[in-house]
């Protein structure tokens, strides 16, 4: 019974705190998620997980129905009201239906996707679920037709694609909302903003998340540099890429290790630390390695989670962690350590360790960071 499964899912989202308002709760109880996922069994449609709907030729997910917990959190962050005019970037169909419920018959919802197969599917499924008043548009979201923006601006824009930038800042009305998974040095945080005096000011807790990548004009450049002969790649996705050829000999010798005395539990997230280091340290990059290569990197980062690193001339330092005990709950306790490679590796590692300790003493227990976004020409 789809409605029983749906109500059970909503009960779970309420208990976990992802739903905070009666409006979002009622909406999630009403909109039939399984209608937007006809490819999977009804039970799968009501699991708290993503449902992939489209893949690239090399097997990566290029479109999906997002996880319910994350959609609930983003809808809460969007603070939608009846009558709001809303733009959604990335069209699964389900989220557009949720938005349409929240803004009611006096609201307006436009959902945009670059992939015509995705918009065809969304159009079909929205009609099947009774939401054919949602406008579905095939377009590159970086170059939208002018009529997407109503007079006076959008009340809200909700982005459901990982995005490196926020070109929609000028389309949002003063006092309006923008919710987006924003990439900073490959770290992706869903951020809820209000527009004030032309700038977007974050005013919701940041949520670490991941969506399918932006395609088209907004596709980001990872600015990858490969250290010759090593199978080590450095991504300078934000900031200026640095030369890396001179780093090759640094990995001939074992690194020096600088301990931080800063620890983290086995299942405790430390995303705030990595975002802090990305902003604080010039020459910051993300380090990945060929898994089968003899790259000389100690405790190499896992394939889909490049390590945090900095380049200092012929030397490099990288954030790692070592298990130092079982922790209070038996899930492990780890100490952040910095590995320094090359002639000035110890110095670079000491510099990074000092920033880890600064974060520990000043920011770790503080409220989450506040993000302000201004148009470039402001």
């Amino acid at each position: 019974d789809p409605s029983a499964l749906r109500n059970r899912l909503v009960d779970q989202l309420l208990a976990a705190g992802h739903i905070r308002t009666a409006a979002v709760e009622a909406t999630l109880r009403r909109v039939p998620r399984h209608v937007f996922a006809p490819e999977v069994p009804v039970r799968t449609a009501y699991a708290d997980d993503i449902i992939p709907t489209r893949h690239t030729p090399d097997g990566r997910i290029s479109s999906s129905v997002s996880a319910p917990w994350l959609l609930a959190a983003m809808l809460e962050a969007a603070r939608l009201r009846p009558g709001h005019r809303v733009l959604e970037i990335g069209s699964g169909g389900y989220n557009a239906a949720l938005i349409a419920e929240l803004v009611g018959p006096t609201g307006q919802v436009t959902t945009v996707d670059i992939d015509p197969d995705v918009t065809d599917r969304a159009t079909r499924l929205l009609a099947a679920a009774g939401y054919d008043h949602v406008r579905v548009l095939t377009a590159d979201a970086e170059h939208l037709p002018a009529d997407v923006v109503p007079e006076g601006g959008l009340d809200a824009a909700i982005v459901t694609v990982d995005t490196w930038d926020l070109p929609w800042i000028t389309m949002v009305a003063e006092g309006g909302r923008l919710v987006a998974p924003l990439r900073l040095h490959q770290y992706v945080w869903s951020i809820g903003f209000t527009k004030r005096d032309g700038a977007l000011i974050s005013d919701e807790p940041l949520t670490v998340c991941g969506f399918v990548p932006m395609q088209g004009a907004g596709a980001w450049d990872p600015n990858l540099r490969t250290i010759p002969g090593r199978g080590i790649r450095l991504a300078f996705e934000d900031g200026t890429p640095m030369p890396v050829d001179q780093l090759a000999p640094a990995f001939d010798k074992a690194p020096s290790t600088v301990r931080t005395n800063v620890t983290v539990g086995g299942e405790e997230p430390f995303d705030s630390l990595t975002l802090y280091l990305a902003g604080a340290l010039p020459g910051f990059c993300r380090l990945s390695v060929d898994q089968d290569g003899h790259n000389g990197v100690i405790s190499p980062p896992p394939p889909h989670w490049p390590g945090a690193a900095i380049v200092r001339g012929t030397s490099l330092a990288r954030l790692a962690h070592e298990r130092i005990g079982d922790g209070d709950h038996g899930k492990g306790e780890h100490e952040f350590v910095i590995h320094g490679y090359g002639p000035a590796g110890h110095l670079a590692a000491t510099e990074m360790a000092e920033h880890v300790q600064h974060w520990q003493h000043n920011h770790r227990a503080a409220p989450c960071p506040r993000i302000t976004v201004q148009p470039k020409d402001a």
């Binding site: 930038d165 926020l166 924003l182 990305a278 902003g279 470039k376």
Partner: peptide, 18 residues
């Protein structure tokens, strides 16, 4: 205060202190 420069925007991050 950390600043990231994007194509269309400038992103500033304020880190509150404990």
């Amino acid at each position: 205060l950390h600043v990231f420069h994007k194509k269309y925007t400038r992103i500033k991050i304020d880190w509150p202190v404990v």
